[in-house]
Design a protein around this nucleic acid. Structure first.
Lengths: 164, 164
DNA sequence: GGTAGATAGTTGCAACTGATACTATCTCGC
DNA sequence: GCGAGATAGTATCAGTTGCAACTATCTACC
């Protein structure tokens, strides 16, 4: 009806922002991230990167920062700053690596372990609330698809690393 | 085996970062957003917010900025800046709204329409590449779940707006 | 064993984002 | 038609992020 004033070329017929996957993904992620970030910030004074480091350290035990980088997929600068922040609050301890003077081994302090034990249930509760009413198989599929998208994006971005 | 050195409280047993939905969501979204943002920036000098405005304007026709805000879910500051940037490049035109001196009506310029026609196929191609190999029903479910998560996050964040 | 290049981590810088405050205009009630 | 509160949009500021450059250390080869 109003098509006269804005002729859409045939090529764009399939494009609707609301149905555009990168858009949907970004909007959903922002909404969830904002929710979670606010919860951690308000109650524990933690940023998302800090919380991720705590998780990985609690799961994997003491490792160095570059391992944290590859484990979390975050930038090394982000990891560095998050670790500094946590160290300042004595939630983690950094020790020199005798085998490699460049790297520091990072580990949760007892206080950090305690904080983790305190936050983890909250984190799980948020996840549970987000997926309430969804079928577990749907959630599993969702996670699988998300990993797949991440992989595809990495490949399309010209990610190097394996093979060549 | 190494459980001795880091006793995990029972409450945290279910928490693994890799399987934590907010984490998966954020990582996937960041990967995809970075890919798309770089593509638009490199080839067209557009930011993601600018591109979203173009999409909505192409789909919906001339509207004012607050409509753009509710349509895209972006902050009004973000919309304002994106619109200014596009106006500076003459990709959109802002006209006074005679009915309301506060609001400006924003519309794509012919040049903006042309740019949209040029970018849209690229955008669709990226989406197609991302979901290559996935079953269409899976993609549909993914989009549905993402919208659902977004809604749940909004509710949990104490979103007001309807009813009370 | 000394030099070239790789790697761990930090610092500096620029861009983006979001909250707050502000101006201008509108609406409503008196 | 005037003042109080709501709304559209902009400007300002602080915090975050990622890239690039840098330092320090390690590895490998001559």
């Amino acid at each position: 009806m109003t098509a006269q004033s804005r002729p859409e070329p045939a090529d764009t017929a399939g494009l609707q922002l609301d149905a555009y996957l990168p858009y949907r993904l970004s909007v959903a992620s922002n909404a969830v991230s904002r929710l979670i970030a606010r919860a951690y910030e308000d109650r524990f004074g933690l940023t998302i990167p800090q919380w991720r480091l705590i998780c990985v350290l609690a799961e994997d035990g003491p490792i160095n920062q570059s391992a944290l980088v590859s484990r979390t997929g975050m930038d090394k600068v982000t990891v560095s700053r998050a670790a500094q922040g946590l160290a300042k609050r004595h939630l983690l301890e950094r020790s020199q690596n005798d085998l490699d003077g460049r790297s520091h081994v990072v580990a949760l302090s007892p206080e950090g372990v305690r904080l983790y034990a305190e936050i983890a249930p909250l984190a799980l509760a948020y996840e549970a609330a987000l997926i309430a009413g969804l079928d577990p198989s749907e959630v599993a599929l969702l996670k699988r698809l998300l990993m797949r998208l991440q992989g595809a994006a990495g490949v399309l971005a010209g990610e190097r690393g394996e093979g060549a």
